[in-house]
Design a binder for these strands. Structure first.
Lengths: 233, 233
DNA sequence: GCATCATAGTGTAATTATTACACTAAAAGC
DNA sequence: GCTTTTAGTGTAATAATTACACTATGATGC
């Protein structure tokens, strides 16, 4: 690769990081995975997992690397959120953050987070601690994005296991959107879309009628989308 | 400001630019403002107006600066679009682009674009020339964003003059969404929202019944929004 | 000044989607 | 086999969306 100055740009350059807002859900309230900072600035404060972007690394790859290195998470839904570039957002120097948000099946990663040397913890959205840098602002942006998107793109499923009951799905939507949903209307609508595959399997060892499991039918979604269908809850 | 290396980050850094996708509308098809590159690479190719981000400049300020310097445009709607970071998106070296999209009242800027030394021109979306770098991809992303947003946020008005007729507004939506809209239903819905202020003024010198002008009532929109109203067309 | 042309502006009925609401079914624990 | 708890379902009332055709008005040309 050629040198930079050859191409009329030898100004000082901002540093680049990515920060990841990681959402998880376990049936109750929506949660966020945070890690405790080990170094200054904001030593011992909770923060979004993040890190510097390498010179030959796309920001999305960087986000995936950080997800893996700092939270032990891989192969999950990830989407670019926003690029935060306030000049004073980092007290050290000019650092721009290209932020991402991830949706993970929390159960699958419960054991991994908090392992090793990195202190990681799930926090309910309503009980977030004080955060480092401008991470509060980043989180707020991510929540808004998630709320906005969840009604017109089937991304909620990313937060559930492969198999889920309709009650779990409804609880997820209620939790994200912070609204109450009528059970019958919810089922009518979501089943009417033809995106859920009913499975033979049912809940076990529950002290009430066992609920049927469903899975999200990606193939059907793809086909319907090509025919002009658009998801809307 | 302290030096960087003090803080464990002295890797080479990608360069940072912003690129601006500028939409305009003059009653027919949606248009894009492009400028011709004067230098290599892609010399004489059409490209999005863009430029390097200064070390003490937020990316949004950079975008505004570029809008003014390269297109003579200021005080318009602007929103961050996406950050493009493919390692090979620029043949010179690693350059990351934080892209923005702007909506301008084309008539207001018709005279300014194309002035001075910079060659600028409006292109219909369906007749775009070959673009430099990955700008085609950026444009595609911008169109998708505009299409997605225009139905649930009242941003379309940014493309029209302060005063506009309902026919103009309808033509705008038809143009952006590439659909036909029923005149009566469109009017019923948009007027029913209570966001349009009918003006006394009507069209002049038209060879048919003169249409009434309306303006977008920002105050009413703000108030309604606080009461939980949400724009949807 | 009257006819023509072009677009502005309006009402209603049929269809579809949304909402609100209450009971029966089944599994486990005692 | 009784109790507890949640799963699962139908229907009527209301609201929103769609489809569709005619009259009103201003300018122009004769």
């Amino acid at each position: 690769m050629k040198t930079l100055t050859k191409y009329h740009y030898d100004y000082p350059r901002p540093a680049l990081t990515t920060d990841c807002v990681i959402f998880g859900f376990d049936g109750g309230e929506l949660k966020l995975l945070l890690i405790e900072r080990e170094k200054k600035p904001f030593k011992n404060r909770w923060a979004l997992p993040g890190g510097f972007v390498f010179i030959e690394e796309a920001t999305e790859d960087c986000a995936k690397r950080i997800l893996l290195e700092k939270a032990g998470i891989k192969n999950v839904f990830i989407e670019q959120l926003y690029t935060f570039s306030d000049v004073k957002r980092d007290p050290r120097e000019r650092i721009i953050s290209v932020s991402y948000f991830a949706l993970v099946n929390k159960h699958q990663y419960e054991l991994i987070a908090g392992r090793d040397t990195i202190k990681a913890e799930w926090f309910e959205l309503s009980k977030l601690p004080k955060l480092a840098f401008d991470h509060r602002k980043i989180v707020k942006t991510a929540i808004q994005r998630l709320r906005g998107k969840v009604s017109y793109q089937p991304i909620g499923f990313e937060l559930l296991s492969e198999k889920f009951t309709l009650t779990q799905l409804q609880a997820l939507y209620e939790s994200i959107l912070e609204i109450d949903i009528d059970k019958r209307n919810f089922r009518k609508k979501i089943l009417g879309m033809g995106l859920l595959q009913p499975l033979e399997e049912k809940e076990k060892n529950v002290a009430h009628k066992a609920a049927r499991y469903y899975s999200f039918d990606k193939k059907a979604y793809k086909e319907l989308t090509q025919k002009g269908f658009h998801f809307e809850l």
